[in-house]
Design a binder for these strands. Structure first.
Lengths: 144, 144
DNA sequence: TGAATAGAAGATATAAAACTCCTTTAATAA
DNA sequence: TTATTAAAGGAGTTTTATATCTTCTATTCA
């Protein structure tokens, strides 16, 4: 569905959002540890998301990553777009470059319906909305 | 969504189904040409699907691939399972191995809904049903 | 039977994704 | 203002997915 890199990115963003609500900034060591991802790898991914303005970072001691209040409205769809590009939302289900309304592949019409469902689901899911369930231990971000 | 290999497989199966309805058997050269895939690569993929009994093959001159009548009910979901395995249908949306009803990831509940939609769409799409639109040139299987 | 055809199988090559390391830059705090 | 800390940036490695090539085997038909 989405790349492994993108899965890490979403988990990291949800975790950072939770920490950011408590006014705290989080280093990549803690992020990697809490979401169960390779440390240097997630750092790269997050640096890229900083450039794309989905979150903030700060260098130096007490530095790390955080999400500003106005960025808590960032949706999972925004993260997927930033990491994987638009292929999940705009590509053909059979990988045909020329597939379109006027020249559709056999599953085109069925496919655009479920793709729209996926998009809506990801678009409606805002990065700030997951904190409560995480704090209550109703949901989890790590493998084991 | 599905791997490139799986996209080739679906396109090939739909094409072979169409040919098979006319009692004809199709060689890998023609298949690769008509769906726009690498020749040796699609051969491999189809050989694997023969082993998994989604289609038939015959060696020698006049040999090739074909789909028996009772196999025309094969769904796109069957092909996806055979090629990509079950990860699209059963994996966690965030890649967490331990994600489940009792220990869900933050997007678990939203995700299982759209995943069910995807599964239903693919399960209801049978390999034999696309021939009519292909013959009428209402749908297409090739890039250019 | 034997030449020709076409899939089967194994080995190899290339490309993309995932991951790591090392150096540089910026911020902090002593 | 200097030592320290943590992200940024660049470059490299490993792994997995995709694609190709070659040899082998089964089948057909003259």
């Amino acid at each position: 569905m989405v790349s492994k890199t993108c899965e890490y990115a979403i988990r990291a963003m949800i975790f950072i959002a939770q920490k950011s609500k408590k006014e705290s900034i989080t280093g990549m060591n803690e992020i990697a540890d809490k979401i169960g991802s390779p440390k240097y790898f997630i750092a790269k991914v997050l640096q890229d998301l900083v450039r794309k303005e989905l979150l903030q970072s700060l260098k130096g001691p007490t530095g790390g990553f955080y999400i500003a209040k106005e960025q808590l409205g960032c949706s999972l769809a925004d993260i997927v777009k930033a990491v994987d590009g638009n292929k999940l939302f705009s590509g053909c289900g059979l990988g045909l470059k020329t597939c379109s309304e006027t020249k559709p592949c056999p599953i085109h019409n069925k496919f655009i319906i479920v793709r729209k469902d996926i998009y809506n689901m990801l678009q409606e899911a805002k990065i700030g909305e997951f904190s409560k369930n995480l704090e209550k231990n109703l949901t989890f971000l790590k493998r084991k």
